[in-house]
Design a protein around this nucleic acid. Structure first.
Length: 273
DNA sequence: CTGTTTACCTGGGGGC
DNA sequence: TGCCCCCAGGTAAACA
């Protein structure tokens, strides 16, 4: 589900909603989302304070004080919401975090159970990013950082843009929207992309992501932010999910094709290899 | 080593 | 209504 703009929206929401709260209790209803045993979380989290909240790519980091960190990845259908403490939970709610003197609880909900939460003693998220081999964040990446990855592979643009070790944060929706706006075919080999095209591509990457953040993300079916609200960038989508609609630039039909293992939407007329 | 396919889960929608 | 099939924002692991 969530790509960079959705994760950023959630991180911003949590930052506003938390007031350096202290964790008073932790409940796990499905241990599959935890990287370690639930008991460890119960013991470690009790009494820890919520400090800074960071994001890199699609990961969100809740820094704990005096030390420790929760690293979370929502994968396809994960949700992090603050809700009233007494609100009943449904069968898709797997984790509950309660706080001292706070009328809200943080819940982790995930229909498909693909998401993961990991507890770390170390609050240094840079170490985590290195261990997971994540590339630079899509909002910060420079042409110099991505150039080598484009040159040294025979893969196509769609595959490389989705590769989190090259650029962290893009997913299936935004990759398609970005390639359309750049008139680049998802099938174009990245070793044929010129330096000028790379520079232009990265400007569009950031422009599309920033616009999506300003719209609080894209809600196709499940995504909601930490307040439980849907995003609205779905109204700005030009190609994603638009099979058989007309390309607004040339009037040809938008096609859907399986590329790099994912449904890929594009205009074969405007987007050239 | 490189690049592609599959497995992990649950639910929604369309065809019959 | 029900059944079967395909599809879904992601990513490791397995495979060729």
């Amino acid at each position: 589900m969530p790509e960079l703009p959705e994760v950023e929206t959630i991180a911003r929401g949590l930052k506003k909603q938390f007031y350096r709260n202290i964790i008073a209790a932790f409940k796990c209803h499905y241990a599959g989302v935890l990287e370690q045993k639930p008991d460890l979380y119960c013991r470690f989290l009790l009494g820890k304070r919520i400090g800074e909240i960071k994001r890199h790519g699609k990961y969100i980091f809740l820094l704990l004080e005096p030390q420790g960190m929760l690293a979370m990845h929502l994968r396809m259908t994960g949700q992090l919401c603050l809700v009233p403490v007494n609100q009943a939970i449904d069968k898709h709610t797997h984790l509950e975090f309660f706080f001292k003197d706070f009328a809200q609880k943080l819940i982790y909900r995930d229909i498909r159970k693909f998401g993961r939460v990991e507890l770390l003693n170390d609050s240094n998220y840079e170490n985590f990013i290195r261990r997971k081999k994540l590339g630079p964040d899509a909002l910060e990446i420079t042409p110099e950082q991505i150039g080598g990855h484009f040159r040294d592979t025979k893969r196509n643009l769609k595959a490389v843009l989705l590769d989190q070790s090259v650029i962290a944060g893009l997913g299936n929706i935004y990759a398609d929207e970005i390639l359309f706006r750049e008139h680049l075919s998802p099938l174009k080999r990245t070793d044929t992309v010129t330096p000028e095209e790379i520079t232009s591509l990265l400007i569009t990457v950031k422009k599309v992501l920033r616009t999506a953040i300003s719209k609080k993300g894209t809600t196709i079916s499940n995504y909601v932010d930490s307040y439980g609200n849907a995003g609205s960038f779905q109204y700005n989508l030009v190609v994603y999910g638009q099979k058989d609609k007309l390309c607004p630039e040339c009037g040809h039909f938008i096609i859907r094709e399986r590329i790099a293992g994912r449904s890929t939407y594009y205009c074969a007329s405007c987007q050239r290899s």
